[in-house]
């Protein structure tokens, strides 16, 4: 008979307690960002990202750019957040700032009912030429899908932090025009047969090319180059 090894039980119990704490922190870390996180800091980062790039309505970049890259996005979708945080900086530097590509965001409802609020808010911010900045701000404080993080509070805090005209923004958000813009995006998304967000569609002299999901930087470069056509 080996003597009882009390330390084994002690080590396992202590370990399970630590796991409990870690998982608790991991979950609550999620919900603290789901109550808006640091919207102001997110707004500053988003503003810095787009500094010096022209925005007009839903369009980002030089209006005369030969290639138009349209992104169908849902602000609740984690892959769209990934595209915004990981891919957009590359697109901006390589294609948008030099004037080759202009980006258009077409927000829609894909994940769930809360997505409507984000989509409408993005359209409304477009009325003040900050659609991309608002979307980027909200991605940075994105919570779990359909957890309720995307609410009026986070949207209006983001709008305020970006210096939008609150009254005009609220008015535009509640407008039928914004709602029908989102519906139009939805219809266009269906019409091209897309069934994932984000979906990117590039249009240029080389034709029309699309890709679903989050491409790699090289994949996006390829998309743009094919839309550019032979040079």
């Amino acid at each position: 008979m080996s003597r009882p090894r009390a330390w084994i039980a002690a080590a396992i119990v202590a370990a399970l307690a630590v796991v409990g704490v870690l998982v608790g922190l991991s979950v609550s870390g999620g919900s603290s960002s789901s109550t808006g996180g640091d919207v102001t800091a997110a707004a500053h980062k988003a503003t810095a990202l787009f500094a010096g790039v022209p925005q007009r309505n839903a369009t980002l970049g030089r209006p005369s750019a030969p290639v138009t890259l349209t992104e169908y996005a849902d602000l609740q979708c984690p892959a769209c957040r990934e595209a915004a945080l990981q891919r957009l900086p590359h697109l901006l530097q390589r294609w948008v700032r030099p004037g080759t590509v202009r980006l258009i965001i077409r927000p829609l409802v894909f994940i769930g009912p809360d997505s409507e609020l984000g989509a409408v808010a993005t359209v409304a911010a477009g009325g003040q030429d900050k659609a991309w900045t608002l979307a980027d701000t909200l991605y940075r404080v994105q919570g779990e899908e359909n957890s309720g993080w995307l609410d009026h509070t986070v949207v209006s805090r983001a709008a305020r932090a970006l210096g939008l005209d609150s009254a005009a923004f609220a008015h535009a958000s509640a407008s039928r025009a914004a709602e029908s813009a989102v519906r139009a995006n939805q219809s266009a998304f269906m019409a091209i047969g897309a069934n994932a967000t984000p979906t990117f569609v590039a249009r240029g002299p080389g034709g029309l090319k699309g890709v679903e999901g989050v491409p790699t930087n090289a994949g996006l470069d390829d998309l743009v180059q094919r839309a550019l056509g032979p040079t």
């Binding site: 370990a15 796991v19 870690l22």
Partner: peptide, 18 residues
């Protein structure tokens, strides 16, 4: 022995959550 068992148990538990 104790440190190893403790850390590995935490590691497996937290990895399972992740």
């Amino acid at each position: 022995r104790a440190l190893g068992l403790f850390v590995a148990t935490v590691g497996v538990g937290f990895s399972a959550w992740l």
